[in-house]
Write a protein that binds this DNA or RNA. Structure first.
Lengths: 256, 256
DNA sequence: TCCGATTAATGGTACGATCATTTGATAAAC
DNA sequence: GTTTATCAAATGATCGTACCATTAATCGGA
């Protein structure tokens, strides 16, 4: 028999709660791709909800591309292997499932950012450029507070600067891409601000980059932007060294 | 009263048929963002299906982010304004809705392709490089057939070459991005092959690019890749000149 | 005029019934 | 014994009805 990893659910928006429960179970890896979850009637009993709610939840998950539904005996809900081809609708889903090595994402953002900096320094309004420099200076202030650096605030402004930079390109695709990547990479990027070693360097680099962009010096801004990634990769390497052997085994497993 | 732009639906997978009908009506622009579609019970009558089927269809569309559902009097299905912020889940949806000027997309792909070519020439296997060159030669052959060029086949191989190039980067994000962009930009890109003026130039450029990649000359490959976009933009400009004044009015309207 | 109660429209949920599809088992034919 | 045809059970797909909660318009009284 199956284990029943679900508990009853009550409340409003039932079908969405059911959907998020099932999705969580799948994304957490508790149920592996190709495995059968249950039939609709079984889920109905496990969650103690009506069958309509179950079916609506499954429709949502099917649209997301993470489950497959089969008819007949041995039918029911099956966890789908999420491949790049299936996921053309959703990059963020691929990222959530850790299907994408973080190094790949960093590398990609590097490529995009370089052009972004070029375009921003060419197309950005005067006001936008002014604002960018001001935000960079704010970073510096927040880093030299008497009570110590306000790291959360620094991260927030870093995020805003990134979005502003994308907006300055006047190109929707860059804005969209920045939004999506930021959601997934943000936590890694902010590592730079948690270590004192990198924080000051990163902020100084932001200030210089913002000034070159404001001055309309795209090529200088570009080389400074590249330095941001030198810092980030160095920082990530440091973190990796801290990790234990058991994590390495997990890594190999997930790559297989 | 409302018009009822739907006809009854019969057959299997009813809810998906209903969903695609509604989606088509929305994406075609027949129903504008912010407008109310109908209530569930109205849709049930219009499509002549059960209410469950309607609700399942709506769940799918809600998950896609193109509709919004409101409770109470004046509740029902409303077409959602698809903004960049909402759409972090789906770039292809933004593209389908023509929210993104094609020039933006071309520019973005240009930025990505440059790095892609660099990485491909550095990381590509020997076999992949060999295959790339062979495919480029195939393009040339297809262009000089006695019976005239086989344009459809040429487009198909162009597509395959693009995907191979992305694969050669050994970076999932580039592969995903190429897949997504290809779906939307493909039709524009293939304009290059429809005009005799550009077709031969584009193919020759592909051959040279493939050879430089195979030779491990990333910088030469890069400059050739850029030339592809010079050709594409020139070609798009030609097409735009052919368009009439009435289209220009539409353009301005959609930009407002 | 303004505020509160009423009412009607609508989504959310549940339950039950029927049909079509799929798989496995059983029986019949060779 | 093997193959083929038939049947049965599990399951998704769909429909219908009923009831509750929410929402906005309407109506009536202060």
């Amino acid at each position: 028999m199956h284990l029943t990893p679900f508990k009853p659910v009550t409340g409003n928006n039932l079908s969405e709660k059911v959907a998020s429960r099932i999705e969580a179970a799948i994304l957490s890896g508790a149920i592996l791709p190709g495995n059968r979850l249950s039939s609709e009637r079984e889920l109905q009993n496990q969650f103690e909800v009506g069958r309509g709610a179950v079916r609506e939840a499954l429709k949502t998950l099917k649209q997301k591309g993470i489950i497959e539904i089969r008819k007949g005996v041995k039918g029911g809900v099956y966890v789908k292997k999420l491949e790049i081809d299936n996921a053309s609708e959703s990059l963020s889903l691929l990222l959530k499932q850790n299907k994408v090595p973080i190094a790949d994402l960093v590398e990609f953002r590097d490529a995009v950012d370089e052009t972004e900096v070029l375009l921003a320094s060419i197309r950005g309004d005067k006001e936008e450029k002014k604002q960018l420099v001001e935000m960079a200076m704010q970073l510096s202030e927040l880093n030299t507070l008497p009570a110590g650096p306000d790291i959360e605030q620094i991260k927030a402004i870093d995020r805003e600067m990134n979005l502003l930079l994308a907006k300055m390109t006047k190109n929707f695709v860059f804005v969209w891409m920045k939004n999506t990547i930021q959601l997934s990479i943000g936590s890694y990027d902010s590592l730079l601000y948690e270590s004192p070693k990198y924080r000051t360097q990163t902020i100084d680099n932001w200030i210089n980059t913002a000034r070159e962009i404001a001055a309309g010096e795209p090529l200088r801004a570009l080389s400074l932007c590249s330095y941001h990634y030198v810092l980030l990769q160095s920082c990530l390497r440091d973190k990796q060294l801290e990790e234990t052997g058991s994590k390495e085994v997990q890594e190999k497993k997930s790559h297989a």
